[in-house]
Simulated assay, not measured.
Amino acid sequence: MPTSSHRRSRPERRTGRVPVVTVVAVAAVALVVSLVVAFLPDSGGGGARAVEPVAGAQVSGSPTATRTAVSPSPKPKPSPASPSATATPSATPTGAAGASGASGSSSRSSAAAPAARTASGSAPSAGRIRPGTAYQGVATSYDIGDGNGACSYGPTSDVMTAAMNTADYETSKACGAYVLVRAGSGASITVRITNECPAPCEPGQLDLSRQAFAKLAALSAGRIPVTWSLLSPSTSDTVSIRYKTGSTQYWCGIQAIGHRNPLARLEVRTSAGWTSLARTDYNYFLSEQGAGCGGTIRLTDIYGEQLTVEGIAVRANVVQSTRVQFARH
């Protein structure tokens, strides 16, 4: 009976294989279904988020996934010389901001350096004489007498002065400018423009005081080739204001003295706002109808810096200090 029972059990086992295969198939299908469900976007499993970047479903939505997907290389940092290193910063807000900041930073650094500031055109109100430019010309000499000249600054004990040719004098725009003059020998001097040199002085020519010329060459040389350029020197002086002789509240001429940088504009405040006064070739700014005479004055240098001065009364031919000065460039 055990044997017979055992024999009968084999067919039952053979016939029982069909249900087993079916169960295996059903189990496999169930496994596949569970895997599909597990990998659906709605699933909260960490594995699903790990797969999404590879499939490109949410690359931009996850910074971590973005970095992983963009950089297939196992190296944590790409080489700065590689195209991917260039593309990665520009594709992200941080990288873009950094690039912009660097440009802005480079630009600000350039503006802080004297040569870069002038070379980059940071003197919007400059006339013919521009900072950062070397001018070729000749130097001659003359007896400056008491130091007074076309700029109407009056007598002075300062002998390191010069007269600018008419073209570059430019209706007194050159008045008060500090100029570095270099000779072919390598000698150099700094002079202040206080006068105009009319024809036959030619563009580029400087007529130096004899004392200044003598520091570059022997007076007997008479005429020497030079290179000169505008300076924004260190100085302890402050700007002063002087009203012209004959000035009243009904008519006045105003002059600025001792400014570090060439003056581009002088304005007075009136009921209509700031009014720019016309500049004469003798270096006074005139208010023909008296507008603003005795009121607030605003000075602008060639770099665009403005100084506002108040409390300067109409006192003809009196030099009045303002206690302010333009910045050095």
Rank of each mutant, 00 (worst) to 15 (best):
S4Y: 00
R7C: 08
P11H: 10
R14N: 02
P19K: 07
V20W: 10
T22M: 12
V23K: 08
V24A: 02
A30F: 04
A30N: 00
L31S: 09
L35S: 08
V37A: 01
A38Y: 14
A38V: 12
P41G: 05
G47P: 06
R49N: 12
A50D: 10
P53M: 01
P53R: 03
A55W: 11
S62T: 11
A65T: 07
T66Q: 14
V70T: 09
K77V: 14
P78H: 03
S82T: 01
S84W: 08
A85R: 07
T86C: 03
A91V: 13
P93Q: 09
T94K: 03
G95K: 06
A96D: 13
A96I: 15
A97L: 14
G101K: 11
G104A: 14
G104W: 14
S109L: 15
S109M: 10
S110D: 15
A112F: 01
A115C: 06
A115E: 09
A115M: 06
A116G: 14
I129V: 15
G132R: 12
G132T: 10
T133Q: 14
T133M: 12
T140M: 10
D143P: 07
I144V: 09
I144F: 08
D146E: 11
N148E: 11
P155Y: 07
T156W: 03
D158H: 07
V159D: 05
M160E: 13
M160S: 14
M160Q: 10
A162C: 14
T166M: 13
C175F: 01
A177R: 04
Y178T: 05
A183N: 04
A183T: 06
G186I: 04
A187S: 01
N195P: 07
A199L: 00
P203G: 03
Q205S: 06
L206A: 01
S209L: 00
Q211F: 03
A214D: 00
A214T: 03
L216M: 10
P225W: 06
V226F: 05
L230E: 02
P233F: 09
I241S: 00
I241G: 05
T245Y: 04
S247Q: 00
T248A: 13
Y250A: 11
C252P: 08
P262E: 03
A264G: 13
A264W: 04
A264N: 10
S271F: 15
A272C: 07
W274L: 06
S276G: 15
R279N: 01
E288T: 15
A291I: 15
G294V: 04
L299K: 09
I302Y: 02
E310K: 05
N317T: 05
N317C: 02
Q320S: 13
A327I: 07
H329S: 14
